[in-house]
């Protein structure tokens, strides 16, 4: 059976959920071979094996943390040379897309970014994408070389499918470009204890209507009652009420949760671009004409300062 390379996104050996989703997709078309790089690479193996990785190629070197992007491209290229895979799948983060693009160019292959689904077709892998702020769904395929495809979080269900997960050391020779961009400092983000925005099953967002940083406590309380991640519109971020890492939309995160709750958000095209593919959409807005209501499964026309706390209490009461 053909092998499919899966690039592993992990933090010190803790595999992030989108990678496990890629293993599910990879199994549709072949046998997943995972590539894990950097500190803790080998620690990823057990979890990857549980989810179907037949092999885990690992390599650790200080270059992965000390220099931007290129060392990872060098390693992935070495893995492609070793495995001759049928496809290469990479999680669709900002860095993932950059790694994938440079790899594709080097190996003479076409690249598709931000796929939301993958299936085997007559002429090879077919990727589904959601474009123009999710107003169109396209099907594309790579016409030249080994398909390199980046896949968005929440594109497939994580499934357990035990496999060997044999760890093998990957031999990597860094290119001359590897040390071009030095990382001279790094400030890790503080964990909020809430689920990762792009991976969460439920996202509760606040916009300009929240009207102040201190009022985001209302949004966070609702999020916590549901075990949700917190998002924000660009208006709320630009006002300094919530961190940019939580921005949902074209220039923020793109989310596709089971449930999206928009509070005090008008629903501008750039915001919709990042949340329109959510399965169920709910909004609270005092303006009945707000465009967000065109998207909703359930909407409440009202003041969020009345509706949201009542909702939070009711959710808590129902959960007991």
């Amino acid at each position: 059976m053909a092998e499919v390379l899966v690039y592993v996104d992990h933090v010190d050996g803790a595999v992030r959920k989108p990678t496990l989703e890629l293993l599910t997709l990879a199994r549709r078309v072949g046998e997943p071979v995972a590539v894990a790089l950097g500190a803790g690479a080998a620690d990823t193996a057990a979890r990857l094996a549980e989810h179907g990785a037949v092999k885990v190629l690992t390599h650790d070197a200080s270059e992965y943390a000390d220099y931007l992007v290129v060392p990872k491209v060098d390693a992935l290229q070495a893995a492609v040379a070793q495995v001759s895979p049928a496809a290469v799948l990479v999680p669709s983060s900002a860095e993932g897309k950059e790694i994938a693009a440079r790899l594709a160019l080097r190996i003479g292959s076409g690249i598709i970014t931000d796929a939301v689904d993958l299936e085997a077709g007559d002429d090879g892998l077919v990727a589904t994408q959601s474009v123009f702020a999710a107003s169109f769904t396209t099907k594309s395929r790579v016409a030249k070389g080994t398909p390199v495809i980046t896949v968005k979080p929440n594109s497939a269900a994580v499934e357990a499918a035990p496999a060997a997960g044999t760890v093998e050391a990957l031999a990597v020779t860094f290119s001359g470009q590897a040390t071009g961009t030095k990382v001279t400092g790094r400030t890790a983000r503080e964990s909020t204890g809430r689920p990762e925005l792009t991976e969460a099953a439920i996202v509760v967002s606040g916009g300009r209507g929240v009207n102040g940083a201190e009022n985001f406590a209302i949004i966070e309380a609702l999020a916590d009652s549901l075990g949700a991640a917190v998002g924000a519109s660009r208006a709320a971020v630009d006002a300094g009420w919530y961190p940019h890492t939580n921005q949902v939309g074209q220039t923020g995160k793109s989310v596709s949760p089971q449930l999206y709750i928009a509070n005090g958000i008008s629903g501008a095209i750039q915001h919709r671009a990042g949340m329109q593919t959510s399965k169920t959409i709910v909004a609270v807005n005092k303006d009945a004409e707000a465009p967000i209501f065109e998207l909703v499964d359930f909407g409440v026309v009202g003041d969020l300062f009345d509706v949201v706390p009542q909702l939070t209490e009711e959710v808590k009461a129902r959960k007991g």
Partner: peptide, 29 residues
């Protein structure tokens, strides 16, 4: 090196339920 084979407009979301808050909006939600 890539080919788009098909592009279809996403079906409009089916109209949802919209209620006006008259004191029970949070509970209805």
């Amino acid at each position: 090196w890539t080919k788009v084979e098909d592009a279809v407009a996403r079906p409009a979301r089916t109209a949802g339920t919209i209620v006006k808050d008259e004191g029970e909006g949070g509970k209805q939600l």
